[in-house]
Design a protein around this nucleic acid. Structure first.
Length: 425
RNA sequence: GGAGAGGUGGCUGAGCGGUUGAAAGCGCACGACUCGAAAUCGUGUUUAGGUUAGCGCCUAACGAGGGUUCGAAUCCCUCCCUCUCCGCCA
């Protein structure tokens, strides 16, 4: 959520900044509603003040044993007036709130201008692309050949966009998760957290998925509960309605959870394999930091995600999302894209964002600034470190051998009972 | 799931229809005392919104939402959460 005060005083500047990401802010409507709000609020508060004053005098008169009937007659119609005014004010505030909750974050100045992913800016590449003396297969073929990935079983159990993993591939999936969590907690200063996979609507509104993106979520019928689309939601909401002591900052959490996405807008996209599933696992990194530290935190966190790719020996590139590709709540996002030989291209495996105070304002996540002594909004930063399913895909495709086996990256071997490769059973 | 008890400021905890945004204590901040500190004393110490050049003034909030009333932290209803006992259960 953008600062409502700024929305009042710098509406045109904000509209300009939002136009960079292709969002048209209806400034006329906002101005009109704001004008009305102001009038109604002053009128309502005036009436409330009158009611309070008169009620107090009635109390005093009664205590003094005077006849209060004449006083009661004076306030007879005040109640109705007040009720009408309050209802009108509420209506206008709801309308404004709905608009404000639907406005995306403003892109940071360093974000390149652009319409879609074609305009994202590549910052750097890491790693040598593997050279094969055979036609590299994609992960579906590799996995099915090894007998460890089964999409037909998953379709039977549930439907499309699910997978059943078994044997060494199921173990590899678990090994990746453990390796990521161990690395982030031992080397990067994150505290591991285990959180609910089902959250309420307040949490989803806090991080920005609601009210605008309900169709992307799995909603538990007849309840206020939703399956989490990312651990970002439960983990970031740990600081909702909290005032953090300055000495406890920065907060750094790492969480492994499954993620559930309806993929409502993705018909026909990535229908093959594990790239785009309704259910996938992710290790998520979340930080809550002082405002002045958030851009440094984004660089640091992105580096933490990169270190996983580096330790796994997976070639990747880092891109800065352009204004048109930026997520709703983010002011700046880096995507890490891993090389997939089976597809012959780089694919997103991590997305690291700085939300500045956008989520914090929705959540009322604050810290006590010792300089002002006042509670002030935190900044939140998060990123995948990494998407486990896609990492598995990358390992299969980059480490495939001509005989159909798959090499196990050295850092994973301790988690794989020492196995150096995965072979068909 | 059944029965009962509760949810008040950073914390403990009063208030149970009227000048109560909320006693008291703790904590914290500032000041006095002191060579300094402790102890003691004094003053201050919620958040959000509106308005104002500013001092300030006004409004709202005692788990959430509705209701009764001139007036609600206090009464009524619904929901959420916590605790105790019973039942069930990985």
């Amino acid at each position: 959520m953008l600062d409502p005060k700024r929305l009042r005083t710098e509406l045109d500047e904000i509209a300009q900044q939002l136009a960079r990401r292709g969002y048209a802010l209806d400034t006329d409507r906002i101005r009109a509603l704001e004008e009305e709000r102001k009038t109604l609020q002053m009128k309502t508060q005036e009436l409330q003040n009158e009611r309070n004053t008169r009620s107090k005098s009635i109390g005093r008169a009664k205590a003094a044993g005077e006849d209060i009937q004449p006083l009661l007659a004076q306030v007879a119609d005040l109640g109705d007036q007040l009720k009408t005014a309050e209802a009108a004010l509420q209506e206008i505030q709801d309308a404004l709130q709905e608009i404000v909750l639907g406005i995306p974050n403003v892109p940071h100045d360093s974000v390149p201008e652009g319409r879609d992913e074609e305009d994202n800016r590549e910052e750097r590449r890491w790693g040598e692309l593997p050279a094969f003396d055979f036609e590299p297969a994609d992960h579906v073929e590799i996995g099915e050949r090894l007998g460890g990935l089964n999409f037909d079983d998953a379709a039977k159990l549930t439907g499309s966009r699910f997978v059943v993993m078994s044997g060494q591939l199921a173990r590899l999936h678990r090994a990746l998760t453990q390796f990521m969590l161990d690395t982030h907690t031992a080397e990067h200063g994150y505290t591991e957290v285990y959180v609910p996979y089902i959250v309420n609507s307040d949490s989803l509104q806090g991080t920005g998925q609601l009210p605008k993106f309900e169709e992307d979520l799995f909603h538990l019928e007849g309840t206020d509960f939703y399956l989490i689309p990312t651990a970002e939601v439960p983990v970031t909401n740990l600081v909702r309605d909290v005032i953090v002591e300055a000495g406890d900052l920065p907060l750094r959490w790492a969480a492994h959870t499954p993620c559930f996405r309806s993929e409502a807008g993705a018909y026909g996209r990535d229908t093959r394999g594990m790239i785009r599933q309704h259910q996938f696992d992710k290790v998520e990194l979340v930080q809550a930091v002082r405002p002045e530290d958030s851009f440094a935190a984004l660089e640091g966190l992105t580096g933490h995600a990169e270190s996983i790719l580096q330790k796994l020996g997976l070639p990747y590139r880092l891109v800065t999302l352009c204004t048109g590709d930026l997520g709703f709540s983010s002011t700046k996002t880096y995507d890490l894209e891993v090389w997939l030989p089976g597809q012959g291209k780089y694919r997103e495996i991590s997305s690291c964002s700085n939300f500045v105070d956008f989520q914090a304002r929705r959540m009322q996540a604050r810290w006590r600034n010792p300089e002002s002594g006042k509670p002030e909004l935190l900044h939140t930063v998060n990123g995948s470190g990494l998407a486990v399913g896609r990492t598995l895909v990358a390992v299969l495709e980059n480490y495939q051998q001509s005989d159909g086996s798959v090499g196990v990256p050295e850092v994973l071997r301790p988690y794989m009972g020492g196995a150096e490769s995965i072979v068909a059973r």
